[in-house]
Computed example of a mutant assay.
Amino acid sequence: MHIEHPQKLEPVLYVVATPIGNLRDITLRALDVLAAADVVAAEDTRNTAHLLTHHGISAKRLMAVHQHNERSAAEKIIALLQAGQSVAFVSDAGTPAVSDPGALLVQAVLAAGLRVIPIPGANAAVTALSASGLAGPHFLFYGFLPNKSAARRTALQALSTHPYTLVFYEAPHRILECVADLCAVLGGNRQIVLAREITKLFETIHACRLSETEAWLLSDSNQQRGEFVVLVSGAEPQPGLPAETLNTLSLLLEELPLKQAVQLAAKISGANRSELYQNALRMKNPEQHDNPAHSADGE
């Protein structure tokens, strides 16, 4: 229970990270700000009221700020700040504005010449990454992939040559479709880590090859429940071709037949056509080229 006596805060927008599951995963500084703020702006006022009550923080003035009203709510918050009131903003869970509402609000407050102070704390992507065992030195946080398979595969194709660990969020009702598309586009040999229900009672962190993931999920329907962080190991570097050239080739393959994409990529980059062709084959048929016994024919 929070017992600090609230101190008067500056008329500032405080962007406050809250727990992603376990209600004890909140910083003392966050509790101080939530206790002292004149107004708490929340993505879901019911969830936030529960959090405040759990930590012994008395009833505050709560206002809803979510994806459907963020722009109009920002105007009200700016007026409060200009009137000398302090406002703490929280999303449903984790760090606001990271695959959650908040970015438009912060943008509007800054544009009005007012100050924004971040209060750091829990974040599902970084928490999952810390326990994933994926040792790459860099990661790319993507957030939620598109809902539809065709758009999802297009997005994944653009990411397919990146050597960084890829970090996604996914909902339980789409996890099987998402995993199928990851395997089809990126190939079955990559490592994947599924982190579900992080910090909650049924927390599960499972690592396997992409080709094994669907069977694991289907073996127990309980493993398809809860919100997911999905982490996938990065592409192995292709000798001889820089990442920029491979990205160009990947984008061209989305719009053109393979041979035309290779020809245009060669003109743009000056890279060897034969090397580009072999890489294009790998991008188009990752499953076949993950097999070391497979040998593609040249042009």
Rank of each mutant, 00 (worst) to 15 (best):
I268S: 10
Q224M: 10
V39I: 06
D38A: 00
P286E: 07
V116Q: 04
G113V: 04
G136V: 02
I3G: 04
K148A: 11
A112H: 02
A296T: 10
E197C: 12
E236A: 15
D220F: 13
A42V: 03
F202E: 11
K284R: 07
G102K: 07
P137T: 09
E214W: 04
A41W: 01
T204Q: 11
R153F: 09
V65D: 01
L159A: 03
K267R: 06
L52M: 09
Q7F: 06
P239R: 03
A111G: 08
A195I: 02
V262C: 07
E254G: 09
Q191S: 13
A293E: 11
H162Y: 13
L28Q: 06
T45R: 01
I78S: 08
V15H: 04
V12N: 12
E236Y: 04
A266P: 10
I78D: 09
I192C: 13
V16I: 07
P137L: 10
A158L: 10
R174I: 13
K76E: 09
E70Y: 05
T161H: 14
C178Y: 08
V106M: 09
G188V: 00
R196I: 01
Y277L: 02
N272A: 10
A150V: 12
V230G: 12
F202G: 03
T53Y: 05
Y14K: 08
H55W: 14
S160L: 05
A112E: 05
Y142T: 15
H66W: 11
Q7A: 07
N285Q: 15
R196E: 14
T127K: 00
F89G: 13
Q107T: 11
F228N: 01
T213A: 15
H2S: 03
A97E: 08
I192T: 11
V109N: 01
T165M: 07
R46H: 13
T245Q: 03
T95M: 14
D44G: 14
L140R: 14
A73W: 00
P118Q: 13
N291P: 10
R196D: 01
A112M: 13
E10Y: 05
V39E: 05
I57S: 09
G21V: 04
L182F: 15
A42L: 04
A17H: 03
L253I: 02
T245G: 01
C178F: 13
R225Y: 13
E43F: 06
G133D: 00
H66P: 14
Y277N: 02
Q224C: 13
S233P: 15
G143Q: 06
V185M: 15
A108F: 00
E244K: 06
I205N: 05
A293G: 10
S219C: 07
H138A: 13
E4F: 12
A135G: 11
T248K: 08
F139R: 11
M283G: 06
E170K: 00
A97W: 07
A195T: 04
T248V: 09
Y277D: 06
H289G: 12
S149C: 10
E214T: 15
D32G: 08
L104A: 05
S72H: 11
Q260L: 11
